[in-house]
Amino acid sequence: HMTFVALYDYVASGETDLSFKKGERLQIVNNTEGDWWLAHSLTTGRTGYISSNYVAPSD
């Protein structure tokens, strides 16, 4: 899985979204569905959809 880092804080707007904080590391589970990616937070252990605009590759 690809690992990304959050560029900004994000508060989930629905049950399927994932809230995260700036600097949080996220593993991308599925990024084939446009701008919203299914991600797993390595910080909180939660999984949900994130906006690809809010993250950048961590490598």
Rank of each mutant, 00 (worst) to 15 (best):
H1K: 13
H1G: 14
M2D: 10
T3S: 08
T3M: 13
T3R: 06
T3L: 14
F4M: 10
F4E: 01
V5C: 07
A6L: 04
L7I: 08
L7F: 04
L7K: 05
L7Y: 03
Y8S: 08
Y8M: 11
Y8T: 08
Y8A: 10
Y10G: 02
Y10N: 05
Y10R: 04
Y10D: 01
V11W: 09
V11C: 11
V11D: 12
V11T: 12
A12Y: 02
A12L: 02
A12F: 03
S13T: 15
S13H: 11
G14C: 15
E15C: 13
E15Q: 09
E15A: 12
E15R: 07
E15L: 12
E15H: 10
T16Q: 13
L18A: 04
L18W: 03
S19R: 03
F20Q: 00
F20C: 02
F20P: 00
F20G: 00
K21D: 05
K21L: 09
K21V: 10
K22P: 01
K22H: 04
G23S: 02
G23C: 06
R25I: 15
L26Y: 00
L26T: 01
Q27V: 15
Q27N: 07
Q27M: 14
I28A: 10
I28P: 11
V29E: 06
V29I: 15
V29T: 06
N30C: 13
T32I: 11
E33W: 08
G34M: 07
D35M: 08
D35V: 08
D35I: 09
D35A: 09
W36P: 13
W36F: 10
W36V: 12
W37K: 03
W37H: 03
L38H: 02
L38R: 02
L38M: 07
A39V: 14
H40E: 09
H40A: 07
L42E: 07
L42M: 08
T43F: 05
T43A: 10
T43K: 07
T43G: 05
T44L: 01
T44V: 01
T44R: 01
T47R: 07
G48K: 01
Y49N: 04
Y49P: 01
I50S: 00
I50H: 00
I50T: 00
I50E: 00
S51L: 15
S51W: 14
S51H: 15
S52L: 09
S52N: 06
S52P: 15
S52W: 06
S52T: 06
N53G: 11
N53A: 14
Y54I: 07
V55N: 03
A56Y: 09
A56D: 06
A56K: 11
P57S: 08
P57A: 11
S58M: 15
S58V: 15
S58N: 09
D59H: 13
D59E: 12
D59Q: 11
